[in-house]
Design a protein around this nucleic acid. Sequence first.
DNA 1: GCCAACGTTGGC
DNA 2: GCCAACGTTGGC
Length: 145
Amino acid sequence: MRYWLFKSEPFKWSWDHQKAKGDAGEEWDGIRNYQARNFMREMKIGDRAFFYHSNEGLEIVGVVEVSALSAPDSTTDDERWDCVHVRALADVPKPVTLKDVKATVSLSDMSLVTSMRLSVQPVKDKEWAIVCEMGGIDPVTLKPV
DNA sequence: GCCAACGTTGGC
DNA sequence: GCCAACGTTGGC
């Protein structure tokens, strides 16, 4: 299983919106960036990802999983763009802020820091474990610790 | 709201 | 294929 991170501006699509969709999940539409799209094409069902609030909040607030493979984005006729579906799995009990991430030496290579504008990005296994620990969530069971 | 970073577009 | 102009993202 691989790990990822999705950014969303909370006033457009927040963690609360995502949770309200429950197990049905929701299309991660609107991505118009090749790099981000290519990452989505690499995703497999069951891959896990952090849900990050950009612009406002600036913190990792939840964990989602990929519930459908990348397929044409329903919000455009442009066939270049496709996207996965994701569903909420768990809250991050202690949201991990961008500030926290920047202040953590072992996370200094995270795309969140190095590729500021990339809205869908890979997360390394080690980074996943560290962020989970900081967030007060078990990296495997996703239960609060 | 500003602006730096950076991706995309389009003229040549 | 270069690069200037432009648009968007996202932290501050």
